[in-house]
Structure formats: structure tokens, C-alpha cells
Simulated assay, not measured.
Amino acid sequence: MCGRFAVTLPQDAMAQLFEARPANDLPEVPNYNVCPTNPVHVIHLGEAGRQLESMRWGFIPHWYKAPNDGPLLINARAETLAEKPAFRAAARSRRALIPATGFYEWTKDAEGVRYPWYITRQDGAPLAFAALWQDWEAEGQHLRTAAIVTCAANEQMGRIHHRMPVVLAPEDWALWLGEEGKGAAPLMRPAPEETLTAHRVDRKVNSNRAAGPELIEPIED
């Protein structure tokens, strides 16, 4: 799964990397502790091509009468999103990318103590998570929302957690966004082994109020 991540890429660099037109209300960067329901950077196709916008991390199905009217859908399972009522329409026509510098995952010891890991690309390049987005409106309230697509972990990441976000290579961005026609389903797979690297970080990131670059600094196991 993906329940917390960091984004440090400047907004202008983000727009240039993804060749997207940026909105004026993008979330502030750097943010070393992006949490569910926070605004996140999302690249999607608009009328004028790729758009870089702010969306709420937490997909809200159209039938919710309020944002908290059901489970908080921060992730969409790749194996079932084409059939799930909440995601199937978005999987066909509202696919997106969510940029990140790295993401966090946790392991537990025999006593149930949670130990955080920070996971990045080995080559230092930004991550691009496969995502879905949805407009939601009720009683005059309008939100644009998104969820990160996850898949079974590869062997390397499986040592930490059994799920991982779908990380898309740059050559796959256009197909996922729908710019190169259909056939994006095969992209929903684990990243190749050795694409990512992980290191332990301080347990202070267990708090959603923690902030600062020290959250991603490696510590001794």
C-alpha cells in the first residue's frame, strides 16, 4: 500500500518534468510527510493537455453524501479497480500521475512496535505513482480527489510490506494518462527488482504531525 510519502521537487521543475501546465494553488513543497486527506500534486489530462493540479488525497465516490460518508479510499488495488464501483469509471477515463520523492512503509517487531522505512528510486529520480482521480460534489461542496494505485510487492519490497504503489517509468506516462490510446492495464505491475531502495528512518514519522527533512534521514537498524 502507500499511506504516507514525501515530495521535494520544486513546482516549476515538476511541471517541466511532466510537461504539464501548473495550476496556481499547488501544495507547498517540500513536504516530507504527506498524509491522507492532504492536498497532493496530480498530473492528469485536461482540455489543453497535461494539467498539474492540487487534489485531495482520498478518492470520494460520487454516491458519498459527505467526504466521510464511507471508508477513506487513499489506495486502489490494481487487481480489482476495473470491477469496483468506486473506481471502474475512473480506471477507464480518469487516470493520473502523483509525483513523489519517496514513500514510507512500516515493519513490526514481535511486540508490535512499528518501524518506518523510506523508499526511493535507486537512481535518485522522482517517482511517478499511477493514480485515479474523481470530482465529487454534494450540497454545494466540490472536491477534486485522487487515489494511488497499488499492486503486489516485488520480492525486494516484499521484505517490508506485501503491497506497493504502482511506479510508472517515464516511457509509460503517456499510455497511462490515455494519450497513446488504450491498453494501460499491463502497466499495473510491480516495479522491476532493484528499481527502488529502502532505508530505516526515525520513528518520529509515525506521527502525522511530524515535519522536516530529518524524517527521511537514514538511521542505524
Rank of each mutant, 00 (worst) to 15 (best):
residue 1 M to V: 10
residue 1 M to H: 05
residue 5 F to Q: 01
residue 5 F to S: 00
residue 5 F to N: 01
residue 7 V to P: 00
residue 9 L to E: 13
residue 11 Q to C: 12
residue 12 D to T: 12
residue 13 A to K: 15
residue 13 A to L: 10
residue 13 A to Q: 15
residue 17 L to A: 13
residue 18 F to N: 04
residue 20 A to D: 00
residue 21 R to G: 06
residue 22 P to E: 00
residue 23 A to H: 14
residue 23 A to R: 14
residue 25 D to A: 11
residue 26 L to W: 07
residue 26 L to P: 08
residue 30 P to D: 09
residue 33 N to M: 04
residue 33 N to V: 09
residue 34 V to P: 01
residue 35 C to Y: 04
residue 36 P to Q: 01
residue 37 T to R: 11
residue 40 V to Y: 05
residue 42 V to Y: 00
residue 43 I to Y: 05
residue 49 G to R: 00
residue 49 G to P: 13
residue 50 R to F: 07
residue 50 R to W: 01
residue 55 M to E: 10
residue 56 R to Y: 12
residue 57 W to P: 06
residue 58 G to K: 04
residue 58 G to Y: 00
residue 59 F to M: 12
residue 60 I to P: 06
residue 60 I to C: 07
residue 64 Y to C: 08
residue 65 K to A: 12
residue 66 A to K: 11
residue 70 G to A: 07
residue 70 G to C: 07
residue 71 P to R: 05
residue 72 L to M: 14
residue 72 L to G: 08
residue 73 L to Q: 04
residue 80 T to E: 02
residue 80 T to V: 00
residue 83 E to Y: 02
residue 87 F to P: 04
residue 88 R to Y: 11
residue 97 L to S: 09
residue 99 P to S: 12
residue 102 G to C: 04
residue 102 G to V: 13
residue 105 E to G: 05
residue 105 E to N: 00
residue 107 T to W: 04
residue 111 E to A: 12
residue 113 V to M: 06
residue 114 R to E: 12
residue 115 Y to C: 10
residue 115 Y to T: 15
residue 119 I to R: 00
residue 119 I to G: 04
residue 120 T to G: 03
residue 120 T to I: 14
residue 123 D to C: 01
residue 126 P to G: 00
residue 130 A to W: 05
residue 133 W to R: 05
residue 133 W to P: 15
residue 134 Q to P: 14
residue 136 W to V: 11
residue 136 W to L: 06
residue 137 E to P: 02
residue 141 Q to I: 14
residue 142 H to I: 15
residue 144 R to T: 14
residue 147 A to L: 02
residue 149 V to H: 04
residue 153 A to N: 11
residue 154 N to G: 15
residue 158 G to S: 06
residue 160 I to A: 06
residue 163 R to D: 13
residue 164 M to F: 01
residue 167 V to E: 03
residue 167 V to S: 02
residue 170 P to N: 02
residue 171 E to V: 06
residue 172 D to Y: 02
residue 173 W to Q: 03
residue 174 A to F: 08
residue 174 A to N: 12
residue 174 A to G: 03
residue 175 L to W: 05
residue 178 G to Q: 09
residue 178 G to V: 11
residue 180 E to R: 15
residue 182 K to P: 00
residue 183 G to K: 09
residue 186 P to K: 10
residue 188 M to E: 03
residue 188 M to V: 14
residue 193 E to H: 08
residue 195 T to R: 03
residue 197 T to K: 07
residue 198 A to H: 01
residue 200 R to L: 10
residue 200 R to H: 08
residue 201 V to Q: 04
residue 202 D to K: 09
residue 202 D to H: 10
residue 202 D to I: 07
residue 203 R to Y: 07
residue 205 V to M: 09
residue 205 V to T: 03
residue 206 N to D: 08
residue 209 R to L: 15
residue 209 R to F: 13
residue 210 A to K: 10
residue 214 E to M: 12
residue 215 L to D: 03
residue 215 L to T: 07
residue 216 I to N: 07
residue 217 E to W: 10
residue 219 I to T: 14
